[in-house]
Design a protein around this nucleic acid. Structure first.
Lengths: 209, 209
DNA sequence: TGACACCGACCGGCCGGACGGTACAGTTCC
DNA sequence: GGAACTGTACCGTCCGGCCGGTCGGTGTCA
């Protein structure tokens, strides 16, 4: 039973990681069954043995990325003290804490979303559901209307500006926006804890650079 | 000189608008020379007469969208009273004012960006430059570090969440975030003027629904 | 007659997917 | 123990279709 050996990853997981790497390195238009299979050191026939179609492959990419994202913010939530703005503080404190987070976890989510966008927009559904769940937390976060929402929306803006290439990655900008958002929360009586950079990496499931 | 007749649009402009419509209605993967030409009521050969390659077509899409965006925020800036946070107030007051703006101007920018992303990521350069210019204004907006930046970043987040389909379009959410951002600006001594819904439509160049 | 806008047939390449294999690791039966 | 069988993972070839781009036209207006 190969699954029980340490660090074992299923062929499906290896193929998904390979697809993410192809998106990041070669762009969406180069995501073909052949290129993904080659990246994973497998033949196209082998890939199609695990995923019966390209849609199925990309669906699996999105599902994994969405699950990682839910794990990320729910884990951060669990580590954050109770009180008003708990989810806003969680996301701000744990999912925006240092540059490592951005290149690892978020790259993989964005790969999946863009691959889905290009292949078949309905495939982003799992990621949409992950966001819907986050916004449920946000809606009952206990702060005045729109405050927690603004925090997570601004973080989304940072992330998407970056991955789309609209604004170059600038860690100083991340820090400035984080400070402004922290102050916004503090003014509403929801002070953000000191950042825990290590905590960010810990909650991410992806380990496939 | 056909250019001088009222409401005249060059064939190139008509083709760009057709390409945007194809992106919105049929998705990026269906943006082919044939589909764009058909949407514009022209043959593929005709399209290639105006744009020698698909890259050239998409480059033109991005250039037009970027120019519209620059016009949008610079026009808003010109209409906004001087003082700290002028550009933040401008963008918040004029580029986020009602639902019409979102479906018209921003859809077209996003179409161009996504088409470029799929075709050849280097083609987004003009839009990147438009953002760089905006961030120059923002950097010397006269508010404490990160405040104006947070405003425009949150607006980007709203826009991109929407066009990517991560969060459904919800005008109430737009209003809530706008209020929170307005309050943030007010707390820094930069009160946003009353919204002028009509002012938004006026600054947009695209008239091609 | 020639410049310009446009047409439409065609080509070459790529890509998704189908399919018929092969290798090999159990399991069953004698 | 070993022969026969079974299922799983994977390979390599092929096909049909689509798509970007070329090219030799045609109509029209000055």
């Amino acid at each position: 039973m190969p699954e029980s050996t340490p660090n074992a990853q299923s062929s499906a997981d290896l193929l998904i990681s390979a697809a993410e790497r192809v998106v990041v390195r070669q762009g969406i238009s180069n995501v073909t069954l052949e290129s993904v299979a080659a990246e994973a050191g497998m033949s196209k026939g082998g890939l199609l043995h695990h995923f019966p179609s390209k849609d199925a492959l990309i669906r699996a990419m999105v599902e994994r990325a969405a699950a990682n994202w839910v794990t990320c913010y729910e884990s951060a939530y669990a580590q954050t003290p109770e009180g008003p703005g708990r989810m806003a503080r969680a996301v701000l404190g744990h999912c925006l804490s240092d540059a490592e987070c951005w290149t690892d976890e978020l790259r993989s989510s964005s790969s999946a979303v863009f691959a889905a966008l290009a292949q078949n927009p309905t495939l982003i559904e799992p990621m949409r559901a992950a966001y819907a769940k986050l916004h449920e937390y946000i809606a009952q976060d206990g702060l005045p209307e729109g405050v927690s929402e603004t925090v997570v929306t601004a973080i989304d803006g940072l992330w998407l500006d970056w991955v789309l290439g609209l604004v170059p990655l600038d860690q100083a900008r991340v820090v400035r926006v984080r400070r402004a958002l922290s102050e916004l929360l503090k003014q509403h009586g929801a002070p953000v804890q000191a950042m825990d950079a290590a905590g960010c990496a810990k909650v991410h499931g992806t380990r496939n650079a």
